[in-house]
């Protein structure tokens, strides 16, 4: 007797339906993340875990030279990297998105093209920029600067510790700007026309429009974009590998958590390796930063959202 066909009672088949996804996801996603944290409390010889050392790895990581210096360096670099990328992607991304949502000729093509770099591999983009654009001998950038009479701007872009990290951040922004623009255009498209019209009748100019209508309306999307950038940047490795080797050249100026983790866990001591135990400790600190950051962003934007609405 089917009394309430629309809300059937749970049955055994639910278990079969959930189990495959649940198993794979738990075994190859959730458990490894927890287990990696556990491993950071062990001393290890290669992949063979030797003995429990408690907080030993972390003590070393936070107090002993050069572990402490590398960790702090990677952390501050990562924050700088994140700030630059967030700024460029949100600011320029919003600007372009705002422009191409006006009804004008070619806007659709620009939308399509803007996402093109995002489809490429970070490795490809990194090599492309380090070898063909920023290279001091045959890089195109310096020659273009020369051609337009801006020679004084010519610079050892990737060699100067002061500019190397920002250059990497710009390249990453170049690549993922498309994603930001995609989100922002969709969000702006979704703003109800009545609101826009009403504002126009009230005589709002472009800036006021952005400030009081567009930005508040797409705030949730800004939050999503920022979180995506945050997660991506604090586990970023590929761009450092491609543009500055896994050493984070020059002199660790472009070293991020990802590259520090890779070097620490998988290299020989003479080239900057610290062993798997210490590598796991770096990965745990990285996890901590990501988790705390995620929680922080959520809270920050939640409160902001409430104020604005």
């Amino acid at each position: 007797m089917e009394t309430q066909p629309s809300t059937p009672k749970p049955k055994l088949f639910i278990v079969y339906f959930l189990l495959p996804a649940l198993c794979i996801y738990t075994i190859f996603f959730f458990v490894p993340i927890i287990d990696s944290i556990r491993l950071s409390f062990y001393d290890a010889n290669g992949l063979i875990v030797k003995e429990f050392v408690g907080w030993g790895n972390f003590k070393k990581l936070f107090t002993v030279y050069p572990f402490k210096e590398r960790l702090i360096n990677a952390f501050t670099n990562n924050i700088e990297f994140f700030l630059i990328v967030t700024f460029i992607q949100n600011f320029i991304g919003f600007l372009i998105a705002y422009l191409i949502t006006r009804r004008m000729w070619g806007a659709n093509t620009v939308r399509k093209i803007s996402f093109l770099p995002t489809t490429l591999s970070v490795i490809v983009v990194g090599f492309l920029f380090s070898k063909l654009i920023f290279n001091p001998v045959f890089g195109v950038l310096d020659r273009i600067l020369e051609a337009v009479g801006l020679e004084f701007l010519i610079h050892a872009w990737l060699g100067d510790p002061a500019t190397a990290l920002p250059v990497l951040a710009v390249v990453i922004s170049w690549q993922f700007m498309g994603e930001t623009i995609l989100f922002y255009t969709a969000a702006i498209d979704n703003i109800p026309q009545e609101i826009v019209e009403a504002a126009k009748i009230d005589g709002a100019n472009q800036l006021q429009m952005i400030r009081y209508i567009v930005v508040p309306y797409i705030m949730p999307v800004i939050m999503i974009v920022t979180i995506i950038i945050f997660i991506g940047d604090f586990t970023q490795f590929d761009i450092v590998y491609a543009m500055a080797t896994s050493q984070g050249n020059p002199v660790y100026a472009t070293d991020l958590f990802g590259s520090l983790f890779y070097r620490a866990a998988f290299t020989v001591p003479a080239r900057g390796g610290w062993g798997i135990g210490m590598g796991a400790a770096v990965s745990t600190v990285m996890s901590l930063v990501v988790f705390i950051g995620l929680a922080g962003w959520m809270v920050f934007f939640k409160s902001k959202k409430k104020v604005d609405y």
């Binding site: 380090s130 920023f134 290279n135 001091p136 001998v137 045959f138 050892a156 990737l158 060699g159 100067d160």
Partner: peptide, 21 residues
């Protein structure tokens, strides 16, 4: 050292020399 030597990588060094630059 050449202009921009801070950013000159090994492969580019080799190319620069062998191209007579």
């Amino acid at each position: 050292l050449p202009r921009g030597y801070q950013g000159l990588d090994y492969v580019s060094m080799q190319q620069m020399f062998s191209a007579g630059r």
